[in-house]
Design a protein around this nucleic acid. Structure first.
Lengths: 265, 265
DNA sequence: GTCCATTTGTTCGTATGTATT
DNA sequence: TAATACATACGAACAAATGGA
């Protein structure tokens, strides 16, 4: 069994590197996972020991991290499995909302209101770049089942997001396109969520009264430590709620649409 | 050095128990930590090996969990240290709010509106107990700097929270009292947060208009897997926001009052 | 500044238990 | 029942960082 030939796609870790072996194995597993190599199941720990030529302890350390990130699920006696759409688990509440909608078969469509180059010193400051840096701005009115749900304005560093100027966002997600076209994966960020009254122009676009309660989310999302996106989203409070879980010493945050509202559409 | 005498406060793990050794060590360390035994520093891994008479691997597994919970911080070459106020880190947004206020020196006071025994089949169902189970209900109007901030209604299983009937909650937190008097620590839970218009009676109590945006939080909090508390909180949307961090593959959620609003009081 | 003891981090090896297939 | 796979547990060694002598 111990043929010691690297498996398809497996990259042997570099033992002279200062990066710990488990971290290298971890990174390579992430890479292979992203390529869909493990859709039929993650290889067993023993198999990974052979593939990477490291000890089982090292493999387990790597798997432990992936498990902690929610990328895989492990159970006794059964091969580890990749979790569906784990990507979203690191993308805050809003991304989760639209994934939830998708899972429920809710028809989603965006009306693109702005999609152009711009400059904005306030936004630039939040992103930690010069005030005259080029930005790609994408403003979308988001519908779920033909009913307006949110108004979403996103500013991205043109340095890496310029190709998004030509993308049709009517049916495509911004992070999906960013990943597919620009090769950039958002992996961390901050959100600030307030409960506000709908400003007049927002209320009109979302077809609600001026005093309808709304969530206002302000987000800065980063890839590998560099802030790349600044976003401002108004969400109808009557069609959205936040679920926060702090079981198992780990938080998860998900935005979900009110089931009753959805079903009554 | 290997005297193999249990240290002050250390409880040797039970090897015939179905509970993993590392979990037992973990629980005992948590207990000792709560008693303040480690304020001057956590014993080294080697010392814990001697104290609990287990392998270093087992000790490290236990420490790993505590580290993951944010209870301790470990660095190479330096003894692990207990993190200040880590308790709140596992208690969701609302607890953090009041800790934040405390840290900013905001004067907090509660008006207790209800503090009695009751029964409620809806609440009981959420807590997973019989509909006729006795509950302790505590309803508080919470002020920050003499200005109303939130209306908070909490139902607890009387089985373990009955002593809270005699506590003065004017200046004491519920979880603090629960911990000090009943010996119960909330360690997990779920929150559901909605943006709503203030219901009439809530608006009156919080001294805002009928259409002021509010956060409504519904929480079920558990201790060691058993749901013990069900809570409903209305928070003024004009004095509160949620901060969500999803850096490093781990979420943290904190509720903070708008600094500007507070300072302008 | 250097040396050294301490402490945690990483890595290997081995063995046994337990749940699933 | 047997094989597989993960969970738990022990032992040992070296590396890397820290802090004090």
């Amino acid at each position: 069994m111990s043929v010691h030939l690297p498996a398809v796609g497996a990259v042997l870790p570099n033992r002279t590197s200062p990066v710990p072996l488990w971290a290298q194995v971890c990174a390579d597993l992430r890479r292979r996972m992203a390529l869909g190599e493990f859709v039929a199941g993650v290889p067993g720990e023993h198999a990974l020991v052979d593939q990477y030529e490291v000890s089982r302890h090292t493999v387990r350390e790597a798997l432990r991290v992936l498990r902690g990130e929610g990328l895989i699920r492990s159970e006794r006696g059964r091969a580890s499995t990749v979790e569906p759409s784990p990507f979203s688990q690191n993308l805050g509440s809003l991304y989760s909302l639209f994934r939830t909608l998708e899972e429920h078969g809710i028809f989603q469509v965006n009306t693109v209101r702005r999609q152009s180059l711009t400059r904005n010193s306030t936004i630039a400051e939040r992103l930690g770049v010069d005030g005259d840096a080029d930005l790609v701005v994408v403003e979308r009115l988001r519908f779920a089942d033909d009913s307006p749900l949110a108004l979403d304005t996103s500013w991205l560093l043109a340095d890496c997001a310029r190709p998004l100027l030509d993308v049709d966002f009517t049916h495509h997600g911004l992070y999906d396109s960013l990943s597919r076209i620009c090769g950039v994966h958002m992996d961390s960020g901050r959100e600030r969520i307030e409960a506000v009254r709908a400003p007049e122009h927002v209320a009109a676009l979302l077809e609600v009264g001026r005093d309808t309660p709304m969530f206002l989310m302000e987000r800065v999302a980063s890839s590998e430590g560099s802030p790349l996106e600044c976003r401002e989203t108004f969400i109808r409070g009557d069609r959205f709620r936040l679920d926060i879980d702090w079981s198992d010493s780990r938080y998860s945050v998900a935005g979900v649409a009110h089931p009753t509202r959805i079903e009554s559409q």
